[in-house]
Amino acid sequence: MKAVMTEELSKTYPGGNRAVESLNLSIEKGEVFGFLGPNGAGKTTTIKLLCGILTPTSGKCGVFGIDPALNPEKLHAITGIITENARMYDHLSGMDNLLFYGALFGLGESECKKKALSLLERLNLTDSRQDKLSSYSTGMRQRLSLARAMIHDPEILFLDEPTSGLDPESSQNVNSMITELAAKGTTVFLCTHQLRYAREICTSYGLMNRGALLAAGSFEELSGMVSPGIKVRIETDLAPEDIISVSNTTLNTKLRGDKPEDFKPECFQSNGLKPLGFKPLVSDSQSSVGLSYEITLNSKEEIPLIVRGIVEAGGEIYHVSAQSVSLEEIYFSLMEKNQLKAEAKENE
């Protein structure tokens, strides 16, 4: 059974604001799914639809087979939710807040107290557990919200910007907690606009913009959509012609069959697989010991082959590093593609 499933899910608010449009998602149990996009992309609306707080205008969705619109309370019993507008009571202490929410989830007092204390300790809130929430800082409130969302050991966590307002240490703490939960089988649906943060903990991603899903999948799948290879930087004393020769011989003969074609600086070749690229780096090309080159390869498996080729050709290697495309680059590239597609459609 899928942890989360949506089919053509759409939500238009009264007044005509189309917040989510034809969203199709499928998330497996135990995944940490990063739902990424800028403010106003439709992330929070999607969470509210998945939690049954909003009713879809069209399409459908399910969380562990439960229709949120039909059985929201059943769904809430197995979910923990953090959104910007889901706050706790200022007149109660941190501990009392957790005890109250624990009682709402049907936990017995002693069980709830035990669970609350362990969560408070894990989130560094033990010392302030008896203080009223009104005296808590933003970061402390956010951490307490996380404790509240986990008080009943949910099967799935919907987290909307869980590290907003947290200092780096607390963020790190929250990240490791999310990773631990995922390792235990808890599914995490994480909304954020901080792409670097998402990259640290997510196992799959969905990229949103203006209510539409640009793409979804693992990082490798997403990077494959925008960049057909990985860039490798090599610093060696081998001359450019020799590098080309080594690359041709090593890669084409060993990985691409028997019809080698010459590389040309600043150009790409296509042989039915993905294109390869090669260029001497201009900006810092002249290092103290050799020249720097950037070669675009299909996969990491090709790196040792080319390194071995250079060494066998008598070259010294001073530096090798793979530079994979970042989540930001993927996101902006997909956004650009999407925009071009929309413009083309408009022109038609």
Binding site: C51, I53, E73, K74, H76, A77, T79, I81, T83, N85, A86, R87, M88, Y89, D90, Y101, L104, F105, G106, R148
Partner: peptide
Amino acid sequence: KHTLETLLYSP
């Protein structure tokens, strides 16, 4: 006080 939404997420 934005606490109603939290309550609505209860079972």
